[in-house]
Design a protein around this nucleic acid. Structure first.
Length: 400
RNA sequence: GGUGAGAUAGUCAAGUGGCCAACGACGGCAGACUGUAAAUCUGCUCCCUAUGGGUUCCCAGGUUCGACUCCUGGUCUCACCA
């Protein structure tokens, strides 16, 4: 039992520091039922979570199955500094309301994955506000500049003469202090968090805790392109509040290779089952598309419902296998005797400019009622039309 | 504070008086092939009812028949020195 648990805990992780401690915590839990604390911090600057964020949530959920109480930390105080990624040294400070609102939307979203009974949501401004100058000063005295510069991006920026704000030095210290305050036994984070996570261990030691937190580092999830990290700004993400149909379609558009990565990091299937799937695909006993469908179904179901996931799949097949029109398409009306096809496409928001519309027509990418449009001067007279651009954009237009 | 370099389409990046709506790369879109996979191939990629017209190359002026390219002033970025 413990071995299985440890295997699932290790799954997908890049590095674990002090694995022995985790083992002990689990053993204690299995023998005495005593729980332990697993902390993970989230930055409340973005209101929407995407699948990349759920890698950590997924792992937290596994911990919950094995006796963990999750400390879901919302870094509202630290958000004022911004984690030093080297990009924006100074970050816009969010208003209290914004932070609270984002935090609320987090809460709505995370309990699709986490067990609310085993989760405590905490804000670090609570104790960091209370720390005061004196406390802060004490905190800074636990570390020195040379060691701070060991951090990879500080080091790079320092060497290449880029600016490093003093406040940025505080970020790792404060994050580490969170672990002291919360008495975390384990902290989860992305690989980019390594320095901060280790700081937690350092500070717990200096503040006199007997056991330092173990650290589990998870990889950064690749986005839909399979290369760059999933992020909103790169527009290669799947938001967890997206509609079932979109989510399903997006997952099916990932590459086969990336699918296994997603399985490992996002699926709740256990490792053995996934290994069987992969073998079947490798031996051509299972079509890779079916494996991908299963993954898509699982993920859509998690954030919506079984029913919706099933509908999304049927809808998808309808459009792509049977070449039919989706059951729900946006409907537009226009009161003209006739309308020029290019205008119609603009009217239905299928195209952003008439130039673009003409190009698409010229290349055979536009269909009216399943028929390819060949004449860019075509007029649509009274009646109902299904307009289609490319493979996925549809609209219904009524000309009155 | 001093000195120097630079600001060009979504990003990177050519162009240094007309051949420029502006090379190229990436990204994106559409088509072919498919499993809306990957890979590959083709075309497109400022706007406009278009073999034409309009508005662009940080901003404001100027020189010129003509400026992304030259001049003046401004704004902003970066590097080196202090």
């Amino acid at each position: 039992m413990i071995d299985k648990a440890l295997k699932e805990i290790r799954r997908g992780s890049v590095e674990i520091i002090d694995f022995e401690r985790i083992k002990k915590l689990l053993e204690r839990y299995f023998h005495t039922g005593e729980r332990y604390n697993v902390k993970a911090g989230f930055d409340p600057t973005a209101p929407d979570l995407h699948l990349g964020h759920t890698v950590l949530l997924q792992k937290l959920s596994i911990f919950q199955q094995y006796g963990a109480n999750v400390q879901f930390l919302i870094g509202d105080f630290t958000a004022q500094i911004g984690d030093p990624t080297g990009k924006n040294a100074t970050r816009k400070v969010l208003s209290k309301e914004q932070v609270l609102q984002n935090a609320k939307s987090y809460k709505d979203q995370i309990f699709n994955i986490l067990d609310p009974d085993k989760t405590t949501v905490v804000f670090n401004s609570v104790w960091l506000d209370a720390l005061g100058s004196k406390g802060l000063l004490e905190l800074t005295m636990t570390y020195n500049v040379a060691r701070m510069l060991e951090r990879d991006d500080f080091d790079k920026r320092y060497k290449s003469n880029e600016s490093i704000s003093i406040s940025e030095f505080l970020y790792p210290l404060l994050q580490g202090y969170d672990s002291v305050h919360l008495k975390s036994d384990i902290e989860l984070g992305g690989t980019d968090q390594k320095f901060n996570l280790l700081m937690g261990r350092h500070l717990q030691r200096t503040y006199g805790m007997t056991d330092e937190q173990s650290v589990v580092m998870m990889p950064i999830l690749e986005g839909l392109d399979g290369i760059q990290k999933m992020s909103k700004s790169l527009n290669n993400y799947i938001g967890i509040t997206e509609k079932a149909n979109d989510m399903f379609g997006k997952i099916l558009s990932i590459s086969d290779e990336l699918m296994w990565r997603y399985y490992e990091l996002l699926s709740s299937k256990n490792l053995d089952d996934i290994a069987i799937l992969k073998t079947q695909v490798d031996e051509s006993k299972l079509h890779p598309k079916l494996a991908k469908e299963m993954l898509a179904l699982e993920i859509v179901e998690r954030f919506h419902s079984k029913q919706q996931a099933q509908t999304a799949k049927e809808e998808f097949d309808k459009i792509h296998l049977q070449n039919k029109i989706p059951s729900e398409i946006q409907c537009f009306e226009i009161k003209e005797e006739s309308i020029w096809i290019v205008k119609a496409l603009l009217e239905c928001k299928l195209e952003i400019s008439s130039s673009q519309a003409r190009r698409d027509i010229k290349q055979g990418g536009v269909k009216v009622n399943q028929q390819k449009v060949v004449d860019e001067q075509e007029q649509l007279f009274a009646g109902e039309y299904i307009l289609q651009v490319g493979k996925r954009k549809f609209a219904k237009l009524k000309v009155l």
